[in-house]
């Protein structure tokens, strides 16, 4: 079995079977990740380039560790250290990297569509690790993996994604992925952060947090970008937190065993209260751990895993 694509650009183009393949593969990878000696030779001799045009700790580190545990050679290129600051175009950077014959290029870029742009110009597989507000598929896959692991299924579950939906690639990827897996998706946030026609993607829209989280199985909180205050999207952190912050008190409106997720990094006390983030139903650290397994699975599947062994 393999993915039917050269690249992983978004959840929008994956089928439910392909998503299931990634999740199932990630299960075996998670077993590897829990061994004392984690290295397996699956991608020996393969080269992975992490091309990051935006600061990122967890995603970059996660891809790097995932690649290394599979014995691939992993190279990190980040904006500050690269020729990007010299004004090289994405096309030329792509062609230059191509000449070094990598097997996989993992790209994060502030412009939507940047991963697709690169994918069309490279023979290597391209993994979109976040392109503007468009997609962040590996995040959605690790979220699905984490929910499935905890609940034993995905179909029929209800989730509320809360926060700045307009600017969130995590929200977009999860909306596509969760719906493909038979989940019911709600989005909630200030009206100023809900993009137009979002309901046409098949989600239910809320501007009231209590109503949004009632009866759901999973609450996924999104990170609030503080700069959005200057853009006039919300008046103050205090008010945002009062209306849309998840606190122990607010959780009374939800199911008692509701699962709490957050793609990180969290703003403690803004979108999520510390006792909720650290509480018994929080899966935030499981998400990080599962991110490794899911990214190992993606690298394995895209780098022609199955042949190498």
């Amino acid at each position: 079995m393999s993915l039917g694509h050269k690249d992983l650009l978004g959840m929008q183009e994956l089928t439910s079977d392909e998503i299931r393949l990634v999740l199932d593969t990630a299960e075996s990878m998670k077993e590897v990740a829990r061994r004392d000696i984690k290295k397996v030779p699956a991608l020996r001799g393969k080269t992975i380039i992490n091309l990051f045009y935006e600061p990122s700790t967890r995603t970059r580190t996660s891809f790097e560790i995932a690649g290394k545990w599979l014995s691939a050679d992993v190279i990190n290129v980040s904006t500050s250290a690269s020729s990007v600051t010299k004004g090289e175009s994405l096309k030329d950077t792509g062609l230059t990297l191509q000449a070094m014959h990598p097997n996989i290029v993992v790209i994060r870029h502030p412009a939507a569509g940047a991963a697709a742009f690169l994918a069309g110009r490279l023979a290597a597989s391209v993994i979109n690790a976040g392109d503007g507000a468009h997609e962040h598929p590996s995040q959605a896959l690790l979220d699905l993996f984490t929910i499935r692991e905890k609940m034993g299924r995905l179909e029929g579950l209800k989730v509320a994604i809360v926060g700045d939906i307009t600017h969130s690639r995590v929200a977009r990827s999860n909306i596509h992925g969760m719906q493909k897996m038979g989940m019911e998706v709600r989005v909630a946030g200030p009206r100023t952060m809900l993009p137009c026609f979002i309901e046409r993607l098949g989600v239910e829209v809320f501007t009231n947090l209590d109503r949004a989280i009632a009866e759901v199985d999973v609450i996924m909180m999104l990170r609030l970008q503080i700069e959005r205050q200057q853009a006039g999207l919300f008046p103050s952190l205090r008010e945002y937190s009062r209306l849309f912050g998840l606190t122990a008190e607010r959780m009374k409106a939800a199911k008692p065993d509701v699962l709490i997720m957050h793609p990180g990094p969290i703003n403690r006390g803004v979108e999520i209260a510390p006792d909720v983030a650290d509480g018994p139903y929080s899966l935030i650290l499981n998400q990080v751990e599962n991110g490794l397994a899911v990214r190992m699975a993606l690298l394995y599947l895209l780098a022609g895993g199955g042949q190498a062994g």
């Binding site: 939507a112 503007g132 690639r169 977009r172 137009c196 026609f197 993607l201």
Partner: peptide
């Protein structure tokens, strides 16, 4: 218009482009 690059509509919402 702000920093918008495309029409604000269903396609901008799907593609994550500023509208």
């Amino acid at each position: 218009s702000g920093r918008g690059v495309v029409h604000e509509g269903l396609v901008s919402t799907e593609l994550g482009l500023r509208g």
